[in-house]
Simulated scan of single mutants.
Amino acid sequence: MPLHVPPAPAPALRSVLTALGSPTAVREARTPSLRAALGPATPELPLPVHVLDRVTPEGTAVTSLAGWRFLIRCGDRAVAAAETMLTPDGWAFSHFFEGPYIAATEQALRQAENMKGAYQPRLLSVPGLYMLTLWLHGDLTADGADGHPAATDLLVPLAPAPPGIAAHRPHRVAELLPLLTHRVTPAPLLSSPA
């Protein structure tokens, strides 16, 4: 089933296009694959990046929008990504980057397109675990910048995933969130014997 990619804010896309058109921005980027790319580079698949801030006692994930991520495609593959962020003046280009999450994001998106059901793809970052997931939101009409993971939404951990969590295995939020919460919650300090 096709994914319903939410539209990115126009200023976010413009800022990425401007950065791609700037020889200085591309040359100074820490992305050798983008600097060495042959042919035109185009931003595709804008995904809102949400950060898991906390989980309420009721088990609701509280997230905040951190930015929009665009995969940068040259030819038939993504070679890098561009991140944008919200500033007091609006959406602005932040940086280019590359690494394992580029290919993992593409793989998870292809996997999601073959699932039953329709989803709105987003990214959910779990900073306490150095983890990134493809968040498949069930409300196709939702604003990609808002909301929180519903219990029936799917999370697909991207590779590399933390130890004990299988990459590219879809989990319902209701199943994975308790595990993540347990992993991120610091263990209580034990008092020393008297």
Rank of each mutant, 00 (worst) to 15 (best):
L134K: 09
M1F: 09
I72H: 05
A108S: 09
G59W: 08
T60E: 14
L38H: 13
T185F: 10
T18I: 08
A145H: 06
L176H: 07
A36G: 00
L154E: 04
A194R: 10
A12M: 03
H95P: 00
P9N: 01
A108Q: 08
P100K: 06
L180I: 15
A8G: 03
V26M: 00
A103K: 06
R73M: 11
S192C: 03
S22L: 01
M115S: 02
R27F: 10
S191F: 08
P149D: 06
G117T: 11
L109T: 13
P127E: 15
R27D: 14
V51M: 11
L52I: 13
A150I: 03
L179N: 05
H168N: 13
P163Y: 09
A61T: 10
H148S: 10
L136P: 08
T152Q: 08
S94Y: 14
L52S: 05
I72G: 06
A41I: 11
A159C: 00
E44N: 02
V5M: 05
T18M: 04
A104K: 03
P48K: 00
H50V: 11
L86E: 15
A142S: 14
P57W: 14
M85A: 08
Q111H: 12
G90V: 07
C74W: 07
T60M: 05
R110S: 11
P7G: 04
L129N: 06
R172P: 01
H148R: 11
T87M: 05
G39Y: 02
H4A: 07
G99K: 01
R14F: 11
P100C: 01
A10W: 14
E106Q: 06
L123D: 10
A108Y: 02
H95D: 13
V173Q: 09
A8F: 11
V79Q: 02
H171K: 01
V55E: 04
P48M: 00
T141F: 11
R73A: 06
A167Q: 06
V184Q: 13
P40E: 15
V156H: 06
T84V: 13
P193G: 04
D143Q: 09
